[in-house]
Design a protein around this nucleic acid. Structure first.
Lengths: 101, 101
DNA sequence: TATTGACTTGTCAGATATTGGCAAATATAC
DNA sequence: GTATATTTGCCAATATCTGACAAGTCAATA
């Protein structure tokens, strides 16, 4: 997993002087799992992203964005048409939201 | 599945006056499967995308782009931070490719 | 260098999702 | 109506993901 999110939450954890043990306990997962999430080995659940934001007093929109971006990146990273596809998806998204209004 | 790709290949099939039966046979799948791919119910394999391009004499880059874009769209469609995440993923992608050179 | 504490790695069974294919339903054309 | 084309529903096989645990490394320090 491409890992902007993991890097960020590791950074935040350290800035808050917390151990994986402590954070893991709050998230009700074990330390190996947290380690893997920080290292990008495993994907956090959306609900856990919100908990990270709360625990670290961080902007949840920022974390959710990085979390999603990593997933998008993983999906397209090996594809030649990656950036084109991202642009197409983006315009498709904008079109749909515009229609909803 | 968001369906720019399916619409496109259905359009191309009809422009080429081909039946699902015929195309499916070329792809070595059954017609229900092709129907589902055209309708966005099932995702085509990358290898099948290339076959579509060949069969319909279409630009494979275009088809691959739509095919990937649909997948990206599906991933982000229900997320509030969707467009932000796409932008972040895009810049991440550009950075990595730049580094590779 | 033995012990301790923090973190990481490997593995695996169980859960979940995806796939391919068939049978049946529906739509379209004649 | 019949015949042909397409779609829908379903299911078993397979693949992928998940959570959990045991064992590993690494760094600090007694």
């Amino acid at each position: 997993m491409a890992n902007q999110f993991g890097d960020k939450i590791k950074q935040l954890r350290e800035a808050n002087h917390l151990l994986q043990r402590q954070v893991a306990s709050e998230l009700e997962i074990d330390t190996p799992m947290l380690s893997k999430i920080e290292r990008g080995d495993r994907k956090a659940k959306k609900e856990q992203v919100l908990l990270f934001a709360k625990l670290y007093n961080a902007d949840k929109e920022v974390l959710l964005t990085l979390w999603l971006a990593d997933q998008v990146y993983d999906l397209v990273k090996d594809e030649e048409m990656a950036t084109d596809a991202l642009k197409v998806a983006e315009s498709q998204f904008k079109y749909k939201t515009r229609r909803k209004l």
